[in-house]
């Protein structure tokens, strides 16, 4: 009798919590998990003109992986490029934002709130418009080229600025800055200042203190920043479409084509599944590597 009551009550907090969570969880299950399963199953089918042939097959994955065919060649290249561009973006964003987060965490004394607002405000303005702004800047008649030509520094527009991977990386690094700034700032802000003083007291120079105390302690923020930028940018569509040109095309643009003009849902679904798996693998790899690294520290 007592045991029965016992288990009932130990469960009651769980029950109360799940009653509150159920609307959100049901939405995630019906709105995301089930549709993802649908994508997964569609990836094993074949597009036959306007109908989908539901006979299960691995052909779409073979099609994707087969680098000897044109389609496979394009898709694997785009996947590789999506991942490498995303890594470049994450890395570039990290090294450009780290000093800023460091400055706000350790040097800003007054109006910290204002600095935080300034750091995050651009994030809230329309993503589409921010990417478009870069088109105005990097374009052939854009701000940079026009100014350089007016000054007489160059005679014709710099081609590599626009419709290139460089343009994609710069634009994405700008678009996702807030996602790096915040986790970095949070992890740096948490560092107890007396640890830095202790390091100086024990004879470390400024650089040694940074390398041996601040950097390792900020690693959780660094990993957070890298992943939170890497994962969504792998699937970015707007930036490559607007400023990437052919050279800067990414896998998402192809997926969009399959679900749009090319009307090949099965191959698009397979591409999406492969993208999701790649993202998951990279995330796990980054986590494992970091764990190893931090253990050594």
């Amino acid at each position: 009798m007592i045991n029965w009551w016992n288990s009932l009550y130990s469960r009651s907090d769980n029950a109360k919590a799940y009653v509150l969570l159920s609307p959100a969880l049901i939405l995630v299950i019906l709105g995301m998990a089930v549709p993802l399963l649908a994508v997964f199953s569609v990836s094993f089918t074949t597009q036959a003109s306007f109908e989908i042939d539901y006979t299960p097959t691995f052909d779409r994955y073979i099609e994707f992986m087969d680098t000897s065919s044109r389609t496979g060649n394009v898709l694997t290249t785009l996947l590789g490029r999506s991942i490498s561009i995303s890594f470049l973006v994450a890395f570039f964003t990290l090294i450009t934002t780290y000093p800023v987060a460091y400055y706000v965490a350790f040097y800003v004394k007054k109006n910290k709130m204002l600095w935080l607002v300034l750091m995050t405000l651009p994030f809230w303005t329309s993503y589409l418009l921010r990417v478009f702004a870069w088109k105005l800047i990097l374009g052939h008649k854009g701000v940079i080229n026009a100014s350089l030509m007016t000054v007489g520094f160059i005679d014709e527009p710099l081609g590599f600025l626009m419709y290139s991977q460089t343009a994609v990386v710069i634009t994405l690094a700008h678009a996702w800055a807030a996602f790096a700034l915040l986790p970095l700032y949070v992890s740096l802000e948490k560092i107890d200042y007396s640890l830095i003083e202790a390091s100086h007291d024990l004879g470390c120079t400024k650089f040694e203190t940074f390398w041996r105390v601040v950097w390792p302690l900020s690693l959780p923020g660094v990993i957070g920043a890298v992943l939170i930028i890497f994962i969504p940018t792998v699937g970015d569509y707007v930036t490559p479409a607007l400023v990437g040109g052919t050279e800067g095309r990414m896998l998402s643009n192809m997926i969009q084509t399959y679900f749009g003009r090319a009307n090949n849902f099965p191959l698009g679904a397979a591409s999406a599944v492969i993208m999701l798996i790649s993202v998951a693998l990279v995330t796990i790899a980054v986590n494992v590597v970091t764990k190893r690294l931090t253990q050594r520290l």
Binding site: G31, M32, P35, L36, A38, V39, V42, I228, I231, P232, T233, V234, G235, D236, Y237, S252, I255, Q256, F259, F265, G268, A269, A272, M275, L276, V279
Partner: peptide, 13 residues
């Protein structure tokens, strides 16, 4: 957290 395009095509499918 997942790439947005995946959520988009999942809902589309």
């Amino acid at each position: 957290l997942i790439p947005e395009i995946i959520l988009a095509i999942a809902l589309l499918v």
